[in-house]
Each structure stands twice: as structure tokens, then as C-alpha cells.
Computed example of a mutant assay.
Amino acid sequence: MSWNAPVTPGAGRPVVSFGQPEGYDERARPRPLGVRLPPRIALAAACGVLGLGLIGGAVTGSWLVGEPGGGAARDTFTAAGSLWHNIPVDRLFPPTVAGNGAGPGGADRSWTRVAVAPDTGCANAFDPLLRKVLAPVGCGRLLRATYVDATQSNVTTVGLLFTKADAAGMRALGDRFTTEGLDRRTDLVPRPYAAEGTASAGFGDDQRASWTVSVLTDAPVVVFAVSGWADDRRAGEPEPARQAMRSGATSAVAQAGLGHEAKGLADRVERALRKNVGPAPEKTP
């Protein structure tokens, strides 16, 4: 009770405590009254509280990154799988893409879209072996667009493969790509999309110079990109973007920044995809 608290009739004056009363130990030293936990018990209690906090943080983190287990994560996964027919093409493949810091040495890049492929199946988009690797997750829809860089020296096709798989299927495919190094095999390179009358007209299988493939596990989507020169030159054996982007790499592909072209554009299209995934709409009664 405080000093100005009303007094209930018959209850007497309010009782006010100014501090914790003290007692004395065996050496006549003052000490607070009450229960004191032994050091070991106090330490164990503190560790228990800390452990609960870490567990709670891990659970919250799993919801935020879309790991399975929460209803929101499942809703996000489902919503991402339907984006191909709910979102305008300009939001998935913007007409222009800014690649700040995306080039070699942190140089800025920019890309302009020159072609959009019709949304189709996957029959002609991948080499037979890559199509076989992707078969377990199925092909729901394939969207592709081709871009040219600001100097019109390089062309890059970027794609979004919307699969038919559930979260477990996407994790299994992602684990396989990681453990078997499938994203580095030169016999598993996506095919480009070329359009007549554009800088990509001669962008065929022989012009593939660098590529990247990313299997998302919080959405039923595989993001990929393949880059090459815009002058139709044959590239020889393509280099994985990660390899071509290494510091000190001296190959023609690395020197031309084609690894950065593929990785930078794929990353930004993936970001655009994620921005378009919002909470599931409420169902009307």
C-alpha cells in the first residue's frame, strides 16, 4: 500500500515496508532474510532459463525463415507455388533490374529484359540429364526471361521452375544438389531462351558460359540462370558461377564477369519472388 491509499474503516493504519529486513549470520554480519539458493542451484536455474530462451528463439527463427512446422510456413509455401498465375510477369521478371554491387569487385550492374518465354512445361528447357534430376519434384510451370547487360555484351536467361513437390520433396532435392555437387556439373546446365530480333537471338546451347541453380526449400521453386556473350561466340565448357566468381579467377568467363551475371540476376529475381509471397488471404465465410 502507498501513503495516500485510502484506509478501509476498521482496518487500522496502512502497513508500509521500507526495505527488506536483515538478519545476522554466524559471524554477526548482517544479511537479508529469506531463502538464499546455493550457488550450484542458482547456476542451474540460470542455465535452464537461458536454455528455454534459446529454444524459443530457435522456434521463432524457424517460422521466420519458413522452415516446416508452423501453419504460417505452410501457408507461405503454398502461396509461393501459385504465384506463376497470380502475379504479373513484370513483378517476377522486372523490365529492368538494378544490380548494385553485383559485378566483379563490387561493381554495379544493370540488366534490361529483351524477351519473355511463354509459360510452358519443362520438356525443352533442360538437357535430358538435368531434366531427369529434377523429375522427382515434377514440373508445374516454367517461367523464363532473357536479359542483356547495360553494354549489350552479355546475355542471361533466368528461370523459375514451379514444381509439384511438397516441402519434404524440395528439401530432398536441395540436399542432393548440395551433397552431390550437382550445381557444379557441366552436364547439368539449364538451356537459354533466345528471341529473334533481340541481342539474345544467337544465344543457344553452345553459347552457355556460366550458370547457377538454386533449389528453394521454403517454396516449391527452383531458380536458375545461364549466361553467355551477346556476340554468339561459342563458350566451350561452361563454368559454374561460383567458380567463375572466385577472386583471382583468370578464365575468359571469369574475366568477362559472366559468373556474376548469372548469379547476380538469379539472386535478384529470387528476391522479387519472395517479395511477392505474402500472408495467405483470409477466407470469407
Rank of each mutant, 00 (worst) to 15 (best):
R13K: 14
E239D: 05
V215L: 01
T76L: 04
G248R: 12
G228V: 00
G71L: 13
D119R: 07
H260Y: 15
V223M: 04
P281M: 12
T250L: 09
A145H: 08
A165K: 02
L92H: 05
P192Y: 08
T60G: 12
P279M: 04
A252N: 04
D25S: 11
A209L: 09
L130T: 07
P285K: 06
P95H: 02
R131T: 10
G181S: 00
V158F: 01
D205V: 14
P285I: 06
D183A: 15
N124T: 15
T217K: 03
E26W: 11
L182G: 00
L129S: 07
Y193R: 10
I55A: 15
L52W: 11
R91H: 05
G264T: 11
G23A: 15
V59W: 08
P88V: 12
G66W: 02
Y24D: 01
I55C: 11
A168E: 05
V97D: 03
P192F: 07
V155E: 01
R74P: 00
L37P: 04
A11Q: 13
R29S: 12
S62W: 04
D205L: 11
F93C: 07
G56V: 06
G81H: 01
P14C: 04
W229M: 00
A150N: 11
A194Y: 05
L130D: 09
D231C: 03
S17T: 00
V155R: 02
A241I: 02
D75R: 14
V116Q: 02
A5M: 03
T78N: 08
S110M: 10
T163I: 06
P95R: 09
A262M: 12
W63E: 14
